[in-house]
Design a binder for these strands. Sequence first.
RNA 1: GUGAGUAUGGCGAAGUGGUUAACGCACCGGAUUGUGGUUCCGGCAUUCGUGGGUUCGAUUCCCACUACUCACCCCA
Length: 436
Amino acid sequence: MVKEVIPVLTQRPRGTADLLPGEVEQWKRLEDIFRAVSRTYHYQEIRTPVFEHTELFARGVGETTDIVEKEMYTFEDRGNRSLTLRPEGTAGVVRAYVENKLYGLPDLAKLYYVGPMFRYEKPQKGRWRQFHQYGVEVLGSEAPEVDVEVIAFGAEFLTKLGLKDVQAEVNSVGCSECRPRHREAMVEKLRPVADRLCKDCQSRLDRNPLRIFDCKNESCQAILREVEAPTVLQCLCDACQSHFSAVTELLQEVGVRFVINDRLVRGLDYYTRTAWEFTVPGYSTVAGGGRYNGLVAQIGGPETPGVGFAGGIERALLVLQEQGAAVTERSPLTAYVAVADAQASQTATKLLQELRCAGISADRDYQGKGLKAQLKAADRVQAKYVLILGEEELKSGTVSVKDLATGEQVTVARNEIVSYLSDLQNSSGVVEHDQM
RNA sequence: GUGAGUAUGGCGAAGUGGUUAACGCACCGGAUUGUGGUUCCGGCAUUCGUGGGUUCGAUUCCCACUACUCACCCCA
């Protein structure tokens, strides 16, 4: 029979990834740390759907953002509803907040989430079509203390993760009053010299003038200096100005390492006032966040301020690895049952079951390997003990226990083997820590 | 969406217009009879992403497609 090869059956969709054993441990570690920090900051987990009505993102994230214009995974379901795989986490959380009337609760909603996000983009280093974010949102307060809490949360998490040289870059993008004013000022200064700007910046001038500050083109930077284009910070209204001052003061108070970056822009339309990114020098941004005071009302809820941040798991892990701080773990094996004689296979199966029921991790060979090969296999998985069952042991009702680290071998009665290993395990401090 | 590069066994990686496609790692087996990290010996791609074309002949040349990688835009 000719084997038919259908690539699609053995190829994952573009921009997706399989997390294989070995890598998954890293993810679990990150999630564990994130959850632990969430607990100490008193945030609660929320899980929202991975898809929402397309309109939510269009309205929430912003019609003119790249995400909405060209990156959404949008599809129609059988009821002709337009749905979209979530490209970010905030919109869904805010929707859930409104729909479930969490604003009726006596306290602020302090929420965290972890999960997959989707954006239709060309994959490249640290960028996927399905990627994963952890993030937090606080709804119901416009106090600068809350901005600071959220920034401190992020800084602490990234540090605990093991990332070195993490830095918070902080800016204020103003509010619905001062932002248009800044935009106008910039356009006014740059419009007359627009033809001298690079092609990208010419389109930025229409879409998001602030981004011109980000241009890597030196000539564009020169033009900015020449026309004395104002930064947002210079255009802040009094209220935004005092909010920003409070945030930076408190950050210092709390001891969060940060720098003010008055050119920092964020990609989503909903940000107001404080906006920040966590960067690691030499690498890309690992997380970003900001305040979004208009978003809840924007999607139809009561006027409610919010702040939040989110980071990419793939990116954090990537930087961690490149900094050489990645840790590798393997699930430990206490007992490898080796069959020295085919006659003993049945007994081995029984022994294996007893060990496992007693909470001792145990495995064996199923491929008919010779004893030597079994020892080798046990060594390779770094088993603590090899339990040998052969003709002799069968006859005498015993099992030979070999300690692979020391090479010592003892004979133990078969009906005592479980308690024997349990005792060894307890006294040596080896703990089986697979949780249910 | 734009631009560039790559595509050889499980992994890494040579290679040539022409009968047998290096090598390393990994893996499997063996070095007399039931014992593991070393050493030695042996095994392991009728095949060089897919489909066409050029040619007497292509894994090596050309085209298309697909995938991957990197950069830009943008972002996590």
